[in-house]
Design a protein around this nucleic acid. Structure first.
Length: 277
DNA sequence: CCACACGGGAATGATC
DNA sequence: TGATCATTCCCGTGTG
């Protein structure tokens, strides 16, 4: 586990508070919607593998095109540092693995082309094979799959599986890939955990909930930005109307896991240092 | 104790 | 043919 170096982590009431702080922080940031580097980040995204936009051939179901005005930056992601400050002010310390620069002054990142998460897609030959996160994104855009997978917070790219029907989604994925055996949620989740290492999708400390890397979201054509897409000022009730039942009302991006999992920390360190350019 | 969600090691398969 | 990534199996842990 990523927490190996730090003190054993345990979910507690404190986490709920912290997550609430995260949400509050997100709200604050959204009020200051002029993210200094979100645009810059997008410039970077554009340099990534923007080939082959998705949203095509779904064999299992119809695809609903994403909302036209999907260009709002997903800068919620950048609120991580803010959240971390909350963490620290709450007495929660970060593990040694967390890049300090990201904690202290991420918004001040001046090398937008080095947004600290995205594994650069292979150059040259693009991957033609459909990848799981692409499929999930498609499914999230498809109302027909809403009983299996839903956006938890489109603004920051979190989504969750519906416990009751998650197996159906997994099966559909397996069929889509033409696997020999039936895909199960367990196996699909195993693949998702691999994404945590590459940083494409991370696990959120919430039941059945994951979060897209914003760069991935951008690559996949943005996220829906319907009226409900903005994170509510205060997620009402347990995860709002869409959250899995029985879950705490507040949640937040798994910043800890995000940075902790990120395997390219050193690359990122050097990347953010202009001297290494 | 049980069911469920989750995490990860390791072997294997598929693709580039 | 090797590298990479996904799939598959399996076992262990934590939680309600």
């Amino acid at each position: 586990m990523v927490l190996a170096e730090g003190p054993p982590y345990k979910m507690s009431a404190l986490d709920t508070d912290i997550n609430q702080h995260f949400q509050d922080a997100i709200d604050v940031i959204q009020h200051h919607s002029e993210s200094p580097y979100s645009d810059q980040g997008y410039k970077y995204y554009e340099t990534l593998g923007t080939h082959q936009p998705l949203g095509c051939q779904i064999s299992c179901y119809l695809v609903t095109p994403t909302h036209p005005d999907t260009l709002s930056p997903v800068y919620d992601w950048t609120s991580a540092p803010l959240g971390s400050q909350h963490l620290q002010s709450s007495g929660q310390s970060w593990p040694p693995g967390v890049p300090e620069v990201s904690v202290g002054q991420p918004v001040a990142l001046e090398s937008p082309q080095f947004y600290p998460v995205l594994p650069v897609p292979r150059h040259g030959k693009g991957r033609k094979k459909l990848r799981l996160y692409e499929y999930l994104h498609e499914a999230l855009s498809d109302p027909a799959m809403a009983d299996s997978i839903q956006w938890t917070d489109t603004a920051n790219g979190t989504f969750h599986f519906v416990s009751k029907n998650k197996e159906r989604l997994a099966e559909c994925w397996g069929q889509r890939k033409g696997n020999r055996k039936t895909m199960t949620y367990q196996k699909m989740a195993r693949a998702l955990r691999n994404y945590s290492r590459s940083g494409e999708i991370i696990k959120v400390r919430r039941k059945l909930t994951y979060q897209f890397n914003p760069a991935i979201l951008q690559r996949l054509g943005g996220i829906d930005q319907g009226p409900q897409l903005r994170a509510p000022a205060n997620p009402s009730g347990p995860g709002g109307a869409q959250g899995p039942p029985g879950e705490p009302a507040s949640y937040g991006p798994d910043w800890y896991s995000w940075y902790g999992h990120y395997p390219l920390q050193e690359q990122w360190f050097s990347a953010t240092d202009p001297r290494h350019l």
